[in-house]
Computed example of a mutant assay.
Amino acid sequence: MICLGVETSCDETALALVQDGRLVCEKMASQERLHAVFGGVVPELASREHLRKGVLLYRALLKESGIAPADIGCVAVARGPGLLGSLLVGMNLAKGLSLGLNARLVGVNHLHAHLMAASLEREIPFPALGLLISGGHTHLYLIRSHIEFELLGRTLDDAAGEALDKAAKMVNLPYPGGKFVDQLGRLGVADESLFPRPLTGVPGLDFSFSGLKTSVARYVSQHPGLRLESLPGEDVSQLAAMPGLADFCASINWTVADTLRIKTQRALTAHGRVRSLIVAGGVAANSVIRRVMLELCGKFGVEPVFPSMTLCTDNAAMIANLGWMLFRDGYCHGQDLEAIPRGRVVPFDYHA
């Protein structure tokens, strides 16, 4: 059975086809350059771009894959969490396609899709501990199957990805800044005592990164020489010679990674029966976080599960994949399916 996935939760417009758990084709339009001018995602512009690109990508997807519309059995759509305007554009496209193709509609939790993305490439041993790290979310889950997610801990304010992006913005690195902090940090030496690891001195599995952002802002204000006079291009390696900048990036990168390690280690200690650790989301592409989590898996004897780099960022393949699994198990939605913005819990309200 073929499932069409639609992803418009933030600033990536993407559509993909998955057949029986195998990715057939995906088409994506990035808005990175559009929002780079503003140093962050502008919701209204994101919605307009989704509206402009959605149908074009659908036509290109069918043409490239050779799949006939009549062969599509279900349409899966990211229903949330995300930017409400962006979600609504994707929701309306998915509902229209569902009616036009006479295919069933399946709403997908965007966060759960991230955690299950690696199943497109390999089997995931369950039960698993899931660490979801992105620009908007930092969550820990106990995952018993592709439909059983127990939230263990979450960010109380800012997410890990936001802390990295804002740190980059403070020194005028390009948008999105997290990947440039990682690139430049590889060329420096981390000072492990430079920044605090927030909320690690108290018990529990919740995260907080707002205090870290404040600490970074204070440090940059005291060291104005770290700020770039002009934005560099995509290649930031030439900035390694700038006094203190690479070490600053290495230090903030290490602090975020070690904060995640401390909380994940607590979860593994409390739930030692898990067989694997899934690390997913856009920030899962960070090299330091990957290394730290691999070491943690070795320490606890659990299998590391990392999606490939292309499956870490927002994509439609993960939406189609989880949508296909849900539909295969008999779950679907009606045309009254609602979009769920960030800050609200996505309900498990499927029809049998």
Rank of each mutant, 00 (worst) to 15 (best):
N172A: 12
R197T: 07
M170Y: 14
E162H: 03
D157W: 02
G185Q: 10
T155H: 01
E148T: 12
A168N: 03
I147N: 12
A163V: 07
D158G: 09
E148C: 08
K166S: 06
L152G: 07
G153N: 11
L173R: 03
D157N: 08
F149I: 02
Y175R: 01
E162C: 03
D182Q: 07
D157K: 06
L156M: 14
L156D: 00
L194Q: 11
N172R: 14
G161R: 05
P176V: 05
N172C: 09
P176D: 08
F195R: 05
F180R: 02
L173P: 04
A160R: 10
R154A: 12
L173F: 11
M170Q: 11
V171Q: 10
G185Y: 12
R154H: 14
A159L: 13
S193F: 13
L187W: 08
L152Y: 08
V171L: 09
G178Y: 12
R154C: 13
D158Y: 03
V171Y: 12
E162P: 02
M170E: 11
P196I: 11
P198D: 14
E148H: 15
G177A: 14
E148M: 03
F149Y: 15
K169E: 03
D165G: 03
G177Y: 14
D165Y: 07
D182H: 04
L156V: 06
L164V: 04
P196D: 09
F195C: 01
K169M: 08
V171E: 05
A167L: 06
F149A: 01
P176C: 01
M170A: 14
P196K: 13
P176G: 03
E148P: 00
D165P: 02
A168R: 00
V181I: 15
F149M: 05
L184H: 00
D191Y: 04
Y175A: 00
A168E: 03
G185S: 11
G178N: 06
V171H: 10
G161D: 07
H146T: 10
F149H: 12
V181R: 02
A163R: 01
V189N: 14
G177W: 13
L187M: 15
L152Q: 01
D182A: 15
L184F: 00
L152D: 03
P174D: 02
D165T: 07
K166M: 06
L187A: 14
E148G: 06
N172S: 10
P198I: 10
L184E: 00
D182V: 04
P174L: 00
M170W: 11
L152F: 06
L194K: 09
E150C: 11
S193M: 13
H146W: 13
L156N: 10
D191P: 08
P198K: 05
G178R: 11
P196C: 10
D182M: 03
V181W: 04
D157A: 03
K179M: 15
A190H: 08
H146E: 14
R154N: 09
E162V: 06
Y175K: 01
Y175S: 01
L194E: 04
G177I: 12
K179F: 08
V171A: 07
K166E: 04
E148K: 10
D158P: 05
D165L: 04
A167Y: 07
F195T: 01
T155D: 00
E162W: 03
V189E: 15
G178E: 08
D182K: 07
R197K: 15
P198F: 04
